[in-house]
Simulated assay, not measured.
Amino acid sequence: MGTPRETEPVTRTRVELPRMPAAGALYRRALLGAVPGLGGGRRGPGLPAVELTAGGMTVDRTHLADYDRVCGFRFTDRLPVTYPHVLGFPLTLRLMTAPDFPIPLTGLVHVGNRITVHRPITADETLDFTTYAENLRPHDRGRQVDVVLVGSVDGKVVWVGVSTYLGRERKPGGGEGRDRSGRPEAPAATARWRVEPRVGREYARVSGDHNPIHTSLLGARLFGFRRPIAHGMWSKARCLAAVENRLPDACTVEVAFKLPVPLPSTASFAVLPDGGFALHDSRGRPHLTGLVR
């Protein structure tokens, strides 16, 4: 709150892509760029002055059913709140792997996500997507940036997702730990879920997010995790699947990602009286907190 934001472009050049990019090739580019001498280079201080668009995205019902199964949603033609994030994810990945994106993809931590659905979207509709970055700002542990993904049908916006990413950086005089003394008591669990290692592999397959921290023990350890961790957007989707019948047709669902969910582990889900929800580990530490408005 009140943190001054770095200069960002007032106008953006619109770049229309002929098709949705392939996520696998973009991940390979990002991983190679993280190797010294293979193109990592210095990053610019600002945001890319572009917005990328890709149109004509249709829903493969087999893929939708696979996504529903992995995340726990009911099998219907109505798209889950989080599904357009998966459809448009390769476009945002293209934006974040560009040389002028200020933070390397391999250094990004997904710390928050806000989705607004203006009306129900069905599997027989065709979506057009636009993505851009905004609000690059300093953070105690580095810099944060918001990546916006907008879904439209026939020229009307029906879905907007905003993912907040933290690029961790070492700062002079840093190293102070987070104060956990005031952590509130975990709410009573509504349900407990056993999250097996296959969740990382299966969600990677249906989402296109093949970051090795989710699918490989070696990959996780290379980035500082003792074992693979679940995707943050799987955690959000799994929570929303648990309250699917309570979600209004138009709503905003905002989550803050806290501690990662190790694979395997047991997570406790709780529905809160104020419209919120939470996911905690077996020791009561929060994985995720969320709110439906």
Rank of each mutant, 00 (worst) to 15 (best):
H210M: 15
V206S: 03
E196H: 15
R198Y: 08
T215N: 08
E254H: 05
A241C: 09
T252H: 02
K236A: 02
P262C: 06
F257I: 12
P212M: 06
S207C: 11
Y203I: 12
W234Q: 14
S207Q: 06
A204W: 03
G200F: 00
R192L: 09
R194T: 12
V253L: 09
I229H: 02
R221Y: 03
F257Y: 11
D209H: 11
H231A: 15
V206L: 05
A220F: 01
L263F: 04
R221T: 10
R238N: 15
N211F: 04
L240I: 04
A242I: 01
H210L: 11
P260Q: 02
A191G: 07
L263D: 03
F257H: 02
K258Q: 13
H231L: 10
E244Y: 03
T215R: 05
S235Y: 01
C239A: 12
V206D: 07
L259I: 14
K258M: 07
Y203C: 04
S235N: 05
R205P: 07
G208Y: 02
F223R: 15
R221V: 05
L240W: 00
R192C: 13
G232D: 02
R192K: 07
R226C: 05
V243E: 00
A256E: 12
V255I: 08
A204F: 04
H214R: 05
A204Y: 07
A241F: 12
H214N: 07
F257M: 10
H231G: 14
F223H: 03
A220E: 01
G219D: 11
R194Q: 15
A237H: 04
P212I: 08
N245E: 02
L259Q: 13
K258H: 09
D249A: 15
H231D: 12
L259M: 14
L263A: 03
A191F: 04
W234G: 13
R192H: 01
K258R: 10
G200P: 09
A204S: 12
R194A: 12
R221K: 11
A220G: 06
E254K: 04
N245Q: 11
R194H: 12
R227M: 13
R192D: 09
V195D: 03
P262G: 02
P228V: 08
H231E: 15
P248T: 11
Y203F: 13
A189R: 06
S235Q: 06
V253P: 05
P212K: 06
E244K: 08
S207Y: 04
R238T: 15
S207E: 04
P262Y: 02
P248Q: 08
A189T: 05
A242D: 00
R201L: 12
R192Y: 01
E196A: 15
R227N: 11
A220M: 04
N211A: 10
W234A: 09
Y203V: 07
S216E: 12
P264A: 12
E196V: 15
S235M: 04
F225K: 05
W234R: 08
L218W: 00
W234P: 11
S207F: 06
R238F: 10
P228S: 09
T215E: 08
C239L: 13
P212T: 14
P260W: 00
A204T: 13
G232A: 12
A256W: 02
H214V: 10
L217Y: 05
P264V: 04
C239F: 05
K258P: 03
R238A: 14
E196G: 08
P212Y: 03
L247T: 00
R194K: 13
G232P: 05
